[in-house]
């Protein structure tokens, strides 16, 4: 029998923005949405990807030597090119790239392997009221593994949070809920067609799942990214506020200003950033959005 594994792309210790206290966050690879502003583009594909950090290259030439597919090519002028279309993600180059200019994003882990890492910071969880957060990507996409991991965390008395887009079948949530202490739930658009346009999928199930989550009694923190001209229209925010006001269990709404910090990751993945012109919202816009939500009795926090 092969052990259950998940494809993750990061384990972040000292995560202090993913639920209460000091936490360790596991980032699952693969997401059902493809938001145009996504700052974790490496999270989207449910498969491994090769990432290039050109500035770290020490020109040792090992990648040219070991690649069985000639995906790494040295040009006449000495510069290098990576043919993503030829690459079969065998990892031979990343294995010998000691300078870490070539990095394989995504690795398979078992629950047992993850737990070794997650247990290390138990003293910090205890002293700060923290725990473990499953994020991504969309952790519920790998729900069998997520369930096993959450069960193991709860069996060991760890506080658990799941950071989700909500785009997942209800039965998946239902199976996970007994092992989740806190849900961090993203709301991007209240309007279905806008949601479709900017994230690539409809929000019907997302809103319905939130309603059901609220009724289940699980504490929920809402996260709302604010992207100027895309989802900052006051009327739409008003609609979101009305909807959220009708949901049980929401302890906090965090409005998060758009930032371009993920933009440079796209080139490393050989992709194009979809919002090159977008700018972060100004603090006044953030405050006015927070005001609209607060008027509906929501506990709003403006993030950074």
């Amino acid at each position: 029998m092969t052990a259950l594994t998940a494809l993750i792309f990061d384990i972040k210790k000292f995560a202090i923005h993913d639920g209460p206290g000091i936490r360790t966050t596991v980032f699952f690879k693969g997401c059902p949405l493809a938001c145009s502003w996504c700052h974790n583009p490496e999270a989207i594909k449910p498969t491994r990807e090769l990432v290039l950090f050109e500035e770290k290259c020490i020109a040792c030439g090992e990648c040219f030597r070991v690649c069985p597919q000639q995906a790494h090519e040295r040009l006449a002028d000495g510069t290098r090119v990576y043919h993503r279309d030829r690459c079969v993600l065998c990892g031979a180059c990343t294995e010998v790239c000691y300078a870490e200019a070539l990095v394989m994003e995504g690795r398979e882990v078992t629950v047992a392997e993850l737990m070794v890492d997650l247990r290390k910071d138990i003293p910090f969880y205890q002293n700060s009221g923290g725990g473990v957060t499953l994020s991504g990507g969309e952790p519920t996409l790998q729900h069998e593994f997520a369930l096993a991991l959450l069960q193991q965390c709860k069996a060991e008395g760890l506080h658990t949070a799941v950071d989700t887009s909500g785009q997942t079948p209800w039965r998946v949530f239902e199976s996970l809920l007994p092992y989740i202490d806190l849900v961090l739930y993203d709301i991007k658009h209240i309007d279905g067609s806008s949601h479709q346009q900017h994230t690539g999928s409809d929000n019907g199930r997302i809103l319905e799942n939130l309603q059901r989550l609220g009724d289940s009694g699980t504490p929920i923190e809402i996260r709302m990214p604010v992207i100027p001209t895309i989802n900052d229209d006051p009327e739409e925010i008003e609609g979101t506020a009305r909807f959220l006001a009708g949901i049980n269990g929401i302890t906090k709404v965090e409005v998060l200003p758009y930032h371009k910090l993920g933009a440079s990751k796209y080139a490393r993945l050989g992709r194009e950033y979809q919002l090159p012109e977008a700018q972060p919202p100004d603090p006044a816009t953030m405050e006015s959005i927070a005001g609209i939500l607060r008027a509906h009795g929501l506990n709003v926090h403006v993030g950074s």
Partner: peptide, 15 residues
């Protein structure tokens, strides 16, 4: 600059 960060720092120190 926020309470979560401050408490986290305190958590690191006390631990």
């Amino acid at each position: 600059d926020n309470d979560a960060g401050l408490q986290a720092m305190r958590g690191v120190i006390e631990t």
